[in-house]
């Protein structure tokens, strides 16, 4: 092909990429934590509450699972402010949509993990006089967590990838900084190859951990 690679042209702008990397990393950590918190609450309510109480929680999950994250993000940024009459920064809209989107998936992982445990485990706990809360904490949850780990890591990988969508509302993540540099030096091939490599370097170790954990769980 004879393309003349020149990564050197990026050198003066590397600090922007590192900054973008930091933003991507922080968005991932932040929205994984908030998403897991929401997912835990929603998952618990949906497994324990009666149908009418659980209904709004189910509606939340379905809405966020069944619409694209990009649409949610754009809606939060451009539409929600109109509805509420408040302005929302791109950063806030991005954080909110990533959190709620992640939360809907995490809640399903928690719910699935809890439901996957044989009801004989509940009964065995009841039969020795344990109460529901204690059975849940000491018998069900430790087993459910094991079931959840692969799906949990999977979702977290997705969450990191999904942060790249925030660049569409000009939040300065890794991809956004890449596009800025590209428009300055006109070297998309070098810039986006490096951006992809940086994503890969963050995600590949995570999938290795995931595989390792799955293998360890099989042994037990």
């Amino acid at each position: 092909m004879g393309y003349d690679w020149d990564f050197g042209a990026m050198a003066p702008y590397m600090h922007l990429l590192w900054k973008g990397l930091g933003v991507t990393f922080l968005y991932t950590i932040g929205t994984v934590i908030s998403g897991v918190a929401i997912g835990l609450i929603v998952g618990l309510v949906r497994t324990n509450a009666s149908t009418p109480v659980a209904l709004p929680f189910r509606a939340y999950v379905e809405v966020f699972r069944c619409t694209p994250l990009l649409v949610q993000l754009v809606w939060m940024y451009y539409a929600l402010p109109v509805l509420l009459g408040v302005s929302m920064s791109a950063a806030t809209a991005a954080f909110l949509s990533l959190t709620l989107y992640g939360g809907s998936f995490y809640s399903e992982i928690f719910r699935g993990g809890i439901k996957a445990i044989d009801k004989g485990q509940w009964e065995a706990g009841h039969a020795i006089g344990m109460r529901r809360g204690k059975i849940f904490r000491r018998i069900i949850l430790p087993q459910a967590v094991k079931v959840m780990i692969p799906a949990f890591i999977n979702q977290t990988v997705m969450q990191l990838k999904n942060t790249s969508l925030v660049s569409t509302v000009a939040v300065g993540d890794l991809l956004y900084q890449g596009s800025i540099i590209t428009s300055t030096i006109y070297r998309p091939l070098e810039v986006y190859t490096l951006v992809a490599a940086l994503y890969f370097m963050m995600l590949f170790p995570l999938t290795l951990v995931s595989g390792y954990v799955e293998r360890r769980m099989e042994i037990r």
Partner: peptide, 15 residues
């Protein structure tokens, strides 16, 4: 829970 302290149970599938 209080009642079941006095009535133990062993299951077909061990649990």
């Amino acid at each position: 829970a209080r009642l079941r302290r006095n009535v133990g149970m062993v299951f077909q599938h061990f649990n």
